Simulated scan of single mutants.
Amino acid sequence: MYQANKQRYDKMIYNRVGNSGLKLSALGLGLWHNFGSVDPIENQKAIIHQAFDLGITYFDLANNYGPVPGSAEKNFGNILAHDMHAYRDELVISSKAGYEMWDGPYGNWGSKKSIIASANQSLARLQLDYVDIFYSHRPDPDTPVEETALALDQLVRDGKALYIGISNYSGIQTQAIIDIFNDLKTPFIIHQPRYNMFNRQIEQDLLPVLRETGKAAAVFSPLSQGLLTDKYLNGIPKTSRAAKSTSPFLHTNQVDATIKTVQRLNEVAKNRHQTLAEMALAWDLRHSEVASVIIGASRPEQLVDNVKALNNLNFSQAELNQIDSILSQQPNIDWQAH
């Protein structure tokens, strides 16, 4: 039977989520990859156990994570029920609805029908009465924002979620739904956007809104699908995600176009006595609005390495200027696939 590390809280940092009372571990574990029905369950257990042993308390899921869709929630639910049930109240577990989950007009987007049904299905797979955070995974262009907001608010009133979040909304869209949540007194506290050194849109668009309204961000893709690690410093390994033509999120042309930039960033990281991945994670956390950075893992050892980023979170202005200068010379790339 799994017994958690008694020193798990000694070194992890916990950040307050905006003006709410909730705190999240500075690093959260995302279950988008490596936790589906095609992945070895023993490795999934080892990763989840290692995360918690390191003080990571935020576990991020969505209804369609797999493959097959739903299997990440099911696997996590089984691990929680059999190995970690005693620690449920020490965990922040989130899920989402908004991307395609089942056939027909109701298994997608942000209608009340879709969100309520999806949340009920997620809770069944997770074997939980409630999740700590439930997100609208993306804005729905065909559903009034009021309907999506009311559906999310109902989840809280029905005891199926403690807090509400949104993901992939623009700054303008975020402000619009915040106004509705304020009228409803919905505990909306967090936004989950993509953010890394190669994709900085939220600095201009979203972070100012979060700052002004007392909300926080939990950012995903902090390592840009592995580009901001040492994996591609010397080219494209045959076993890498970029080398696999089936990957919709990282392509060889993107790697080729960023190698020189990555090599220069790696020199900055070396001078900080960090790996490039550690520096990239710390760089995301430099914003007070970023409560947590969501990382993925295919092996427990990756989590041990990533947590080392917390040993050096401070940047001098000279370092930030150097990073900005390097990034400003990066050729324009279409990052929409990220």
Rank of each mutant, 00 (worst) to 15 (best):
Q50D: 09
Q50S: 15
Q50H: 15
Q50R: 15
Q50V: 15
A51Q: 01
F52W: 09
F52A: 10
F52T: 11
D53K: 13
D53F: 13
D53Q: 09
D53Y: 11
D53G: 10
D53I: 15
D53N: 15
L54A: 00
L54T: 05
G55H: 02
G55T: 06
I56N: 00
I56E: 00
I56M: 09
T57S: 13
T57Y: 00
Y58R: 01
Y58S: 01
Y58V: 04
F59A: 08
F59G: 07
F59P: 03
F59R: 03
D60R: 03
D60S: 07
D60A: 11
D60M: 09
D60P: 04
D60F: 03
L61S: 10
L61Y: 01
L61D: 04
A62M: 14
N63V: 13
N63D: 15
N63F: 06
N63C: 11
N63T: 09
N64I: 07
N64W: 02
N64T: 04
Y65N: 01
G66H: 01
G66D: 05
P67I: 13
V68I: 12
V68Y: 12
P69K: 04
P69H: 02
P69Y: 03
P69V: 05
P69A: 06
G70N: 03
G70C: 06
S71G: 07
A72N: 02
A72P: 01
E73F: 10
E73P: 03
E73T: 11
K74M: 13
N75A: 13
N75F: 02
N75Y: 04
N75I: 09
N75S: 15
F76P: 07
F76E: 10
F76Y: 13
G77M: 10
G77A: 07
G77Y: 03
N78G: 07
N78I: 14
I79K: 01
I79H: 01
I79A: 08
I79V: 14
I79C: 02
L80N: 02
L80W: 06
L80I: 14
L80M: 14
L80H: 04
L80F: 04
A81I: 03
A81K: 12
A81Q: 08
A81D: 06
A81S: 06
A81V: 03
H82N: 14
H82I: 12
H82D: 13
D83Y: 12
D83C: 05
M84I: 13
M84V: 12
M84F: 15
H85M: 12
A86D: 14
Y87F: 04
Y87L: 06
Y87K: 01
Y87N: 00
R88I: 14
R88H: 11
R88G: 09
D89P: 01
D89F: 05
D89N: 14
D89C: 04
